[in-house]
Design a protein around this nucleic acid. Structure first.
Length: 489
RNA sequence: CGGGGAGUAGCGCAGCCCGGUAGCGCACUUGGCUGGGGGCCAAGGGGUCCCGGGUUCAAAUCCCGGCUCCCCGACCA
């Protein structure tokens, strides 16, 4: 287990959450439930996403949706149900997914269906089938489609956000006239994912290529972004796949090129899901609960009014209403907590919910013409003048976002190692976690060997442009790749 | 999907062995005192004891089946 931020102060504050150092998995579940992000339901693997969690998703969604719109992509909606004969056309793809596909076999008074219908585990097959109608000429390309939807995969072990049977995601599916252009699309999206993770979620990631063993079913290659969680495990936070003509051949998605010849399209697909929320929690959280990056926090600044009696309450209210419009005009998502709870309870509740900044406004502040501001990371109290609060809070939030990213990056760096041999790797993962860079010859047998000897450590990904030096950690033959190894979610 | 544990008020749990009026803490409601880090006093409300069968005069308790959650091992965004 990685080191955990813990001191007497934090211990005194938290009664509701299992401490990270005691049980990381329970800590995670406690945070998800106590922060009111999500909860269990009567159906295994299906969760209810509560308003605070859904608001988080909406901010992530908005950020990424804007990015893909700006790069020419369009949103569609494709059906939930996929006829069996259609699903099974791409052999490798089917083989990869059938173990976790759920089927609709009968319907109401209709009784048994002639052909069972799959509930989409992903939509390559249905989208391919439908999109071919709209592609005739190279002039119809590229088709840059995306949809925001739910999918269902019958998972064995489930965890809130990280691996649920039903989850929300975005799946992009694009069709191109040339391999070159499709490959560029895969890289473009991977970079948008990197930016979403780093700039919005303050979550540092390693973009790279997946090994053959970890490649998506039916893909020529898969690229991913990999993040490090606070327990040192890797989280695959987004994937972007290049299919070449695999799907286009299976589903006959073709166009007439400039030479008047019929040619199959080159396609890609890519996705991020509500899993990102799990990643967010495990990247920034602490023993007192969530810590949210301002750019996606549903509430960026919470205001706790302090007063003793009616008149004092009124003065505090007037002061807050005085600067509130300016703050909101500055684009700050502000919440004033007028609930009847005591201030201490409010502090704890909003810290648990990860709100970046808290403002306290009481009689002492009014006299001084200031507010008290407390930071979720440092818990330091400072005073800010009421005048000019809008721009000032904007700046504070930007600073908070930057500090959060820096903190996560430093954590990752502290838990990243460079090792040369299998023996060292086995020894390392016997005692700890984290990322380990190591040289690899690219032989799948060596990859399997690593997984077996370490009990589950896998190659997360690698930079295909980066040269490797030395000998393979397993067989000693000249290395072709410098790969990152980790246990993963 | 195999091995282990759990499900009783919103939450955390006791009661179950040894069948007989369903309990405790927190939360909740009302009133008062309070209010800058989870406050105090008083009075209240709240239960398909996970679901379905069985045994019994009688089941939270015993038996059988199922569902969900947690932990440990094989597949996965």
């Amino acid at each position: 287990m990685a080191e955990i931020v813990e001191n007497a102060e934090t211990q005194a504050f938290v009664k509701d959450i299992t401490r990270m150092s005691v049980d990381f998995d329970r800590w995670y579940t406690d945070v998800v439930r106590k922060a009111e992000l999500a909860d269990y339901t009567p159906v295994r693997g299906c969760m209810v996403i509560r308003p605070y969690g859904y608001a988080l998703w909406e901010h992530i969604q908005r950020a990424f949706d804007d990015m893909i719109k700006a790069t020419g992509h369009e949103n569609w909606y494709f059906p939930l149900l996929i006829p069996e004969d259609l699903l099974v056309k791409e052999a490798e793809h089917v083989e990869g997914f059938t173990p976790e596909v759920a089927w609709v076999t009968e319907a109401g008074s209709h009784g048994r269906l002639d052909q069972r219908l799959a509930i989409r585990p992903t939509s390559e097959t249905i989208i391919g089938t439908l999109i071919r109608r709209y592609i005739q000429s190279h002039r119809d390309l590229p088709q840059l489609t995306n949809q925001w939807c739910n999918v269902l995969r019958w998972e064995m072990r489930t965890r809130l956000f990280l691996r649920t049977a039903e989850f929300l995601w975005q799946e992009g599916h694009t069709f191109h006239a040339t391999a070159e252009e499709a490959r560029r699309e895969v890289d473009l999206i991977l970079d948008l994912y990197r930016r979403l993770a780093e700039e919005w979620l303050a979550m540092p990631v390693l973009p790279g290529l997946k090994s053959r063993a970890e490649t998506f079913a039916g893909a020529v290659y898969t690229k991913s972004i990999e993040a490090m969680m606070l327990d040192g495990l890797a989280l695959q936070a987004g994937t972007s796949h290049y299919f070449g003509q695999n799907f286009s051949r299976a589903y006959d998605i073709a166009f007439t090129n400039r030479e008047n010849q019929r040619e199959h399209c080159y396609s890609t697909s890519w996705g991020i899901s509500t899993r990102l929320i799990g990643g967010l929690i495990m990247t920034h959280g602490d023993d007192t609960g969530l810590v949210l990056p301002p750019r996606v926090a549903p509430v960026q600044v919470v205001v706790v009014p302090i007063f003793r009696d009616g008149p004092a309450r009124e003065r505090v209210r007037a002061a807050i209403e005085g600067w509130r419009p300016e703050v909101e005009a500055a684009g700050v998502r502000l919440k004033v907590d007028w609930s009847e709870d005591r201030p201490g309870e409010k502090y704890n509740r909003w810290e648990l919910k990860g709100v970046p900044l808290r403002i306290e406004v009481g009689p002492r502040d009014l006299e001084a013409g200031q507010v008290t501001i407390v930071d979720r990371l440092t818990r330091e109290r400072r005073s800010l003048p009421m005048a000019g609060l809008g721009p000032r809070l904007r700046a504070e939030l930007e600073d908070f976002q930057a500090r959060l990213f820096r903190r996560a990056l430093e954590f990752r760096d502290r838990h990243t190692y460079e090792l040369a041999t299998l023996a060292e790797v086995v020894d390392h993962f016997r005692r700890g976690t984290g990322f380990v860079w190591a040289p690899w010859c690219e032989d799948p047998a060596c990859e399997i060997r690593v997984k077996e000897e370490t009990g589950g450590v896998t190659i997360r990904n690698y930079d295909p442009d980066q040269p490797a030096t030395g000998g393979c950690l397993v067989c000693g033959r000249p290395a072709r790749r410098r790969v990152v190894l980790a246990r993963s979610y």
